[in-house]
C-alpha cells in the first residue's frame, strides 16, 4: 500500500521551477531515499508534503488523503526532522519533548508513558534534564528525532539529518533510525546528499533541477548505472598490465572495473593464478549519482 503518493507535482517561484512535474510513490513501512544536490528540489518537496509550502500544481496524498483537504490529520501522520535543529537550546530535553507533545494533545500520564518509551529507545536517560544547548551534535540529533516521533507518526521525514555531523555520530543516528524502523515499522522518508546513506534504502529517487532522473532500488540503480569492481590484494601490477586489464591503485590494492558480476566471474575463472586474494563489490551510490546527474554529491562517501 502506498502511504505517500505524489503525482505531477510542480512548484514554481516565478520562472524558477523548484519542482517540475515529479511523480513517485512511497510504500508503507518503506525506507525511501530522496537524493539530490543542494537546490535540486528535495526540501521544497518536503515542505509541500508537510503542509509548510503551497504547491503550484499536482497531487500530494498521504495515507490516501490530499494534504490540502485534511492538513491537521495528515500532520499527525508526519514527524519531521529538519536539517537545522528545531530544538530550543535553552530548554532541557524534557521540556523540548513535553512542549512538542502538547502540540499533539499528549499531556499528563499519556506524555509520561511516551517519555519512558522514547527514553529507552533513544537512550535519553542521562541527558533528560540537561539543556539542549549543552549536548553534543549526536545527542542533539537523537533528541531531534525523538521529538519528531513523540506523537507516534506513521512517517518520519528526515531532511538531511546527518549534514555537518562527523562519521561516528552519523553512524549513531542511523543506528537509532534503524531501531525505530525495526520496532514500529515506521516509514522513513530521507533526503540526503550523503549517497551511501541511501544504499540501504528500499527505494531511491534521484532528483536534479526539480526533475526526477532515476527511481529504482539501490541494486537496480547500481546494476543500471555502475559496473562491478574486483579488488585484488597482493597481485603483481605487471601481470595485470600484460593482460591488458584496466585498473587503478587503491591504497595497497589494485581495482579492476568490470561490466557486471558475470564478467568478473569469467575473468577470475580464466586467471585463477592471479585472483587468489580478491573481493567483488558493486559500484557505490556515489558512482550511481555521478552517472545519473553528471554531478558529484556534496557529501561524498560515508
Amino acid at each position: 500500500m502506498n502511504i505517500i503518493e505524489i503525482e505531477h507535482l510542480k512548484k514554481y517561484y516565478g520562472a524558477v521551477k523548484a519542482v517540475d512535474d515529479i511523480t513517485f510513490w512511497v510504500k508503507n513501512g518503506e525506507f525511501f531515499a530522496f537524493l539530490g544536490v543542494n537546490g535540486a528540489g528535495k526540501s521544497t518537496t518536503i515542505g509541500i508534503l508537510s503542509g509548510d509550502l503551497p504547491r503550484t500544481e499536482g497531487i500530494v496524498r498521504v495515507g490516501g488523503r490530499d494534504v490540502d483537504e485534511c492538513p491537521a490529520q495528515i500532520k499527525r501522520e508526519l514527524g519531521v526532522v529538519f536539517q537545522s535543529s528545531a530544538l530550543d537550546p535553552a530548554l532541557s530535553v524534557y521540556d523540548n519533548l513535553k512542549y512538542r507533545a502538547a502540540l499533539y494533545s499528549i499531556t499528563g500520564a499519556a506524555f509520561r508513558e511516551r517519555l519512558r518509551e522514547l527514553e529507552t529507545l533513544f537512550e535519553l536517560g542521562g541527558i533528560m534534564k540537561r539543556p539542549v544547548g549543552k549536548l553534543s551534535g549526536g545527542q542533539r540529533r537523537r533528541v531531534d528525532i525523538a521529538r519528531a516521533l513523540v506523537h507516534r507518526p506513521g512517517i518520519l521525514i528526515l531532511d538531511e539529518p546527518t549534514t555537518g555531523l562527523d562519521p561516528q555520530t552519523r553512524k549513531g543516528v542511523w543506528k537509532t533510525v534503524n531501531a525505530i524502523r525495526k520496532v514500529r515499522g515506521t516509514t522513513v522518508f530521507l533526503t540526503t546528499h550523503y549517497m551511501e546513506e541511501a544504499a540501504d534504502a528500499d527505494r531511491v529517487v534521484i532528483i536534479d533541477g526539480g526533475k526526477i532522473l532515476a527511481n529504482a532500488t539501490p541494486l537496480e540503480l547500481k546494476n543500471r548505472y555502475t559496473g562491478d569492481y574486483i579488488t585484488l590484494y597482493g597481485a603483481e601490477e605487471e601481470k595485470l598490465r600484460l593482460l591488458g586489464l584496466g585498473y587503478e591503485r587503491v591504497g595497497e590494492a589494485l581495482r579492476i572495473e568490470v561490466k557486471d558480476t558475470a564478467e568478473a566471474t569469467g575473468l577470475i575463472l580464466k586467471h585463477p593464478d592471479l585472483f587468489t586474494d580478491y573481493e567483488i563489490t558493486k559500484g557505490k551510490m556515489d558512482d550511481v549519482f555521478l552517472a545519473v546527474t553528471g554531478k558529484r554529491a556534496e557529501g561524498g562517501m560515508l
Binding site: 508537510s50 503542509g51 509548510d52 500532520k75 499527525r76 519531521v80 528545531a86 530550543d88
Partner: peptide, 13 residues
C-alpha cells in the same frame, strides 16, 4: 529567524 516557527507549523496546531 531560527526556523522554529516553521517547525511549530508542521504540527497540527
Amino acid at each position: 529567524a531560527t526556523g522554529r516557527a516553521k517547525d511549530l507549523l508542521v504540527s497540527p496546531v
